[in-house]
Write a protein that binds this DNA or RNA. Structure first.
Length: 781
DNA sequence: CAGTGAGCGAGCTTCCGCTTGACTT
């Protein structure tokens, strides 16, 4: 029987540590927090010093009972949860829940999972730090109070099932604000002048510093250059250096994996978790850029043996984020001598990224020589500038180069290449000069990863919650990740070549985006509501402000209930006030009046999403009814124009009759379609739904029937609406309007009618998403 | 993939941060 029970947070960690400690120690894991506030309203007794009601959630019962049993049998229990606010609280919850005793319980901490670090920790046990525990309680209680009081306000004033919280609401706000910046952005055009001098391998580019707003000015400049002589006015060469980035934290890993591998933040975390569990990397949820001494030594050995002494440079990094708690190491390979690992494609790629970044962080600077040549024009006072760069020593660039967010947006080729040997005064041979119309670009929409970066900068959220937060705001429908098709845009290019100027129009695609986040209408309406009524909570500095107070609590300088008392008094008043006085938020906007009837046209959010309304609300007049139409995907109540809104009423439209039934064209969730006798046919992209003719519609219906007939395997005599069809994922039963999957192992052709009926019934009883169609009554006054 | 945008009705939704699997598509 082991004399010692040591409890850590993560089971993978437990396994490693057990190997270091020998048979006197049993090492177990708590799997994170073992207790949480009860779900119900009475979790916090505000009037009684914010007394909390905790419970062990169902999925933790087993862990707790096993730990309880082991703790009873052990002589000493070592609480080794992480050294941060949450870790301290986990230790306290363990102490309390497992009924541990002060005299044989020891609290220890370590920042790295190495044998010496753990042995040292065991030699220096301490007691639970209750100030730190109180800081965690304050954090936990504040988040619950905010989340569970704000959300119900939204249910009443906006829509049921919505949510708000200290972290998610700010994340949404960032995205809404950014979208509005983009909407109000006015693109300005200016001509950029680039000259190419020399021929073949000696050719190089030079650019004019200023840009011309007017086309005439650009043209005049080119005209002046037709007979000009170009000389090198000055030549300057200077050395430049570049240093490697710090090893990965959770947030920087998510950013690089997004840019270099195209991973979503949750994908990155899933793959990293696998790498961690198979022992390839250190812990992946960390805000620290530190490497342990053991790691530093291993990296140095690896670099020296693989690349040589001059590539090695020992570095330590300091964290830049204010809220960092640094309970762990940076993310790094467990063994630096493994340049690659076994595993699937994404595991290999992510591992290599982590390996390269960590190795590079301990390598020498790269050295460059930068050359700038200023080129004079005999007929003008302006100068052209040519930049060249030569790498003198690659250093860390041998293994790794960090990318940046702007890269993808950079349509301009401002690459610093080599310049040919030049001398001052030298006359140059102009090959070609172009003046190209360029447009200023609006700020970019956030990607998942750049949003995480921004949140981290603001000190909002933690490594363990970045990915879940990003999911939450998408699941609530506040934000969507969309692919946007770009728009075509014309631009002019003036080219001077062989002493003549040629003008042409070219087209480019602009605004095409993939995987960028934009707000939905409901996201914008909820945001505006919160900004209006709870400015303090959705303030970008709110978290930083309360974090400062949590720090004071942790240092024993402030009492946690006092801090909460001050906060809650004013917050709760705002909640009460808003419930009493605020109108329902619908985001209503008036677009104008109908050009023919003069009726009011407005947009707002309703039970089924955003819609346009023509006419006033009916009121008591039974004969009058306003007209309604839903907005289409991609349209927003914030940006839709009067013309676009009126377009929506042109559909659905009857296009004729076929087999005695009408054919209607409409637009649904999946785009334009024709409906006929309860059958649907999608409209091909090239046909404008407003222009569909009767003949076209019949043709499309017949084509669809033919295609369906090819899919048909069997029709039942008992009921011809019951069929077996060949679908994209294999055969399935069509039972009236219901589609039912055929279970594995069943031969579709041998199914009887009774079996199909039974399957359909079982399927309809299976739990389905949705429900909650009714609004709670609002407290209107 | 339609229709809907009144009100009636019970009971439901929701936070952030620590951890993994157990689930389905």
């Amino acid at each position: 029987m082991a004399k010692n029970l040591l409890i850590v947070e993560s089971p993978a960690k437990a396994k490693t540590i057990e190997g270091y400690l020998g048979k006197d120690f049993t090492v177990k894991s708590s799997y994170g927090h073992i207790r949480d506030l009860v779900k119900s309203e009475d979790a916090i007794d505000v009037a009684n010093k914010f007394k909390q009601k905790y419970e062990v959630p169902a999925d933790k019962k087993q862990v707790v009972s096993e730990l309880k049993k082991l703790a009873k049998e052990a002589d000493t229990v070592w609480l080794a949860s992480d050294e941060d606010r949450e870790g301290e609280a986990i230790s306290w919850h363990l102490f309390d829940t497992l009924n541990l005793k002060d005299e044989n319980t020891k609290r220890i901490v370590f920042h790295e999972i190495t044998k010496p670090a753990i042995l040292k920790a065991i030699e220096n046990p301490r007691k639970i730090n209750y100030d730190l525990v109180n800081a965690q309680q304050a954090r936990r209680v504040l988040d619950r109070l905010v989340g569970f009081e704000l959300s119900p306000v939204l249910w009443k004033k906006v829509k049921p099932s919505l949510s708000a919280g200290r972290v998610q609401s700010v994340a949404v706000r960032l995205i809404v604000d950014r979208e509005r910046e983009i909407n109000k952005f006015n693109s300005e055009a200016a001509y950029r002048v680039v000259a190419i001098f020399g021929k073949g391998k000696q050719a190089f580019k030079a650019e004019l510093g200023e840009r011309f707003v007017k086309k005439e000015d650009a043209e005049a400049f080119l005209k002046d250059c037709v007979d000009a002589i170009f000389n090198v006015n000055s030549l300057e060469t200077r050395p430049a250096k570049r240093s490697p980035a710090a090893p990965f934290t959770t947030s920087t890993l998510q950013q690089e994996a997004s840019r270099k591998l195209g991973f979503s933040v949750s994908r990155t975390m899933q793959v990293a978790q696998k790498l961690y569990e198979s022992g390839h990397i250190t812990y992946m949820r960390t805000d620290s850029v530190n490497l342990s001494d053991t790691a530093l030594n291993a990296a140095s050995q690896e670099i020296m043996s693989a690349y040589g002494d001059k590539y090695y440079h020992r570095r330590t990094f300091k964290t830049k984020s204010a809220g960092a708690q640094e309970a762990h190491e940076a993310i790094r390979p467990t063994y630096f001598n493994n340049h690659t690992i076994e595993g699937d494609g994404s595991e290999k790629r992510l591992y290599e990224l982590i390996w390269k970044r960590a190795i590079a962080s301990q390598m020498s600077e790269a050295a460059f020589e930068k050359t700038t040549a200023k080129i004079g024009i005999s007929t003008r006072k302006e100068e052209l500038t040519a930049n060249g760069e030569v790498m003198k020593f690659d250093g860390f660039l041998k293994v790794y180069l960090e990318s940046n967010d702007e890269e993808e947006d950079n349509q301009q080729d401002d690459d610093n290449t080599m310049l040919p040997p030049l001398s001052k005064g030298q006359q140059l041979d102009l090959q070609e000069m172009t003046a190209t119309e360029r447009f200023s670009r609006p700020p970019s929409r956030y990607t998942e990863a750049s949003l995480v970066k921004k949140l981290e900068e603001l000190g909002i959220g933690r490594p363990s919650t970045y990915a879940p937060t990003i999911s939450t705001i998408q699941n609530r429908g506040y934000v969507v990740k969309e692919e946007r098709e770009g728009k075509q845009r014309n631009f002019s290019v003036l080219t001077l070549k062989d002493k003549s100027i040629n003008k042409e129009q070219r087209t480019e695609t602009t605004g095409a985006e993939k995987g960028k986040l934009s707000p939905t209408d409901i996201g914008a309406v909820v945001n505006d509501f919160l900004v209006q009524h709870f400015k303090g909570i959705v303030d970008f500095n709110f978290t930083a402000k309360v974090e400062k107070q949590f720090d004071e609590i942790a240092q024993g300088l402030e009492e946690w209930t006092k801090m909460l008392d001050v906060f809650y008094k004013s917050f709760h008043k705002d909640v009460e006030n808003t419930i009493q006085t605020a109108d329902k938020a619908t985001g209503e906007r008036e677009l104008g009046v109908h050009p023919e009837t003069g009726e009011k046209i407005s947009v707002r959010i309703g039970r089924y999403g955003p819609f346009v309304q023509i006419g006033e609300n009916a009121g008591d007049d039974k004969d009058y009814k306003p007209q309604y139409a839903s907005l289409r995907t991609g349209q927003s109540i914030e940006t839709i124009s009067l013309e676009e809104a009126l377009e929506l009423f042109k559909l659905p439209k009857q296009v004729g009759e076929f087999e005695g039934k009408v054919m209607k064209v409409a637009i649904g969730r999946f785009g334009p379609y024709i409906s006929h006798n309860s059958a649907f046919v999608s409209l091909p992209k090239e046909i404008d739904p407003l222009d569909v003719t009767e003949e076209q519609a019949i043709e499309l219906i017949l084509a669809k029937r033919k295609k369906d007939a090819e899919k048909l395997i069997k029709v039942f005599d008992e009921d011809p609406t019951v069929k077996i069809l060949n679908g994209r994922w294999g055969p399935y039963i069509e039972f009236g309007k219901q589609n039912v999957k055929i279970p594995k192992g069943k031969e579709p052709l041998e199914l009887t009618y009774e079996e199909c009926k039974a399957l359909a019934e079982a399927d309809s009883k299976a739990p389905k998403k949705g429900g909650g169609r009714f609004q709670k009554k609002g407290a209107k006054k």
